[in-house]
């Protein structure tokens, strides 16, 4: 009862609980939080428990640079919760930060975007984690649906619209028509796999070990999904495995393209599979209008060109692809009041 009354004074939140970043959209305020999904934890030997030292950007800066008693971890893996307690603490921190008010902190109604391929157990873990973090009511929506709405696709029309959301842990492809998902698939390939592929490539070809943060920087600077006319270079420092000392070397965009081939082919395969499984009428709609890319992975240079060449269909990148899922969730939460949670088959 108290939570219900307090809820009238609260802002509804849409949360894109991603493997790499967590974004929160507040109703009427827009994107109010965009922080890495990283938590730094200190082992408390005195009490035998774990204490959260830092969350978000502050914790990400600690990744790979922590002393023995502090661990910077990502509590989500492949889009789902890997550490329930830490995820709950992280969500609690983010919700508090998003709501802002310190003394009067009403319980918000929360909509969380979950990977299409997540199991019932994983969804329940996310729901309970949000409830534990102080949410009054929790709705779950499949990420591709939120991404399509956030990108401004005409999901209500009786026409097929295909969206590909490349996140940190998963890539989700879906064909949507009449506010429902006709076909969707989720592959556990995303930005993290790109980083991992770069790390492995450098170790294999240069005998040098680089960290997670360095691999991500290389991806942002010279990462590419399709061969281009311009070859870009990037100076990198890592530990030489044979000598055991740090060494500096230079990587170019063609090498990174080679490194990323395996995860990219996984994503292309998922899109081709979706096109195969889509009913012909909807498939022709997709061929006519094209595929829309969302998520942080859409920012990888020339990934749209790769998909165009591989599928032969037009491919466009949505405006501000990083925030599409959170913004789409925000629009859905605005519509729940009008049409009820059944409008998009919300849980």
């Amino acid at each position: 009862m108290f939570k219900t009354i307090m809820g009238y004074f609260s802002n509804d939140l849409s949360i894109d609980l991603g493997t790499a970043n967590t974004l929160i959209y507040s109703r009427g305020h827009g994107i109010v939080l965009d922080e890495p999904s990283v938590v730094a934890i200190q082992e408390d030997s005195g009490r035998g428990g774990r204490v959260v030292v830092a969350v978000g950007t502050e914790a990400k800066n600690m990744l790979g640079r922590t002393p023995g008693n502090i661990t910077a971890i990502r509590p989500l893996k492949d889009g789902v919760i890997a550490d329930f307690t830490v995820t709950e603490k992280m969500l609690q921190h983010f919700i508090r930060k998003a709501l802002g008010t310190r003394y009067f902190r009403p319980s918000p109604r929360v909509l969380i975007c979950v990977p299409y391929g997540s199991t019932q157990v994983e969804r329940r873990a996310i729901r309970e984690s949000a409830e534990g973090a102080g949410a009054r009511k929790v709705h779950l929506i499949p990420e591709p649906m939120a991404a399509a709405i956030g990108a401004g696709m005409p999901v209500h029309e009786a026409r097929g619209s295909m969206v590909l959301d490349i996140g940190g842990g998963t890539s989700e492809v879906a064909v949507i028509s009449l506010n429902g998902i006709v076909y969707a698939a989720s592959v556990r390939i995303g930005g993290d796999r790109f980083d991992e592929a770069i790390t492995n490539y450098v170790r294999r070809n240069y005998g040098i070990l680089i960290g997670e943060a360095t691999a991500e920087r290389i991806k942002h600077e010279i990462g590419s999904a399709f061969p281009g006319q311009e070859v870009r270079e990037c100076s990198v420092k890592g530990r030489n495995l044979s000598e055991g000392v740090p060494r500096s070397f230079t990587l170019n965009s063609n090498e990174i393209l080679e490194a990323l081939q395996e995860p990219l082919q996984g994503i292309v395969g998922a899109v081709k599979e979706a096109l195969e499984q889509t009913p012909p009428e909807l498939g022709s709609d997709v061929a006519d209008r094209g595929i829309v890319l969302t998520g942080g992975g859409a920012l990888l240079r020339d990934i749209d060109k790769l998909l165009m060449e591989e599928t032969g269909l037009p491919v466009v990148i949505a405006d501000d692809p990083l925030t599409c899922v959170a913004r789409g969730g925000g629009r859905v939460i605005e519509l729940i009041d009008e049409h009820g949670p059944a409008v998009f088959g919300l849980e």
């Binding site: 009238y8 696709m153 999901v155 029309e157 009008e338």
Partner: peptide, 28 residues
């Protein structure tokens, strides 16, 4: 603007006057 998301058959427009908040305020 962006597409209407739920189609043209919207039962009612969102009212600016949020009655629920007033009721909750009066109860408090």
């Amino acid at each position: 603007g962006p597409p209407p998301v739920v189609g043209p058959k919207r039962p009612k427009a969102v009212t600016e006057f949020a009655l629920g908040r007033w009721i909750a305020g009066i109860i408090i």
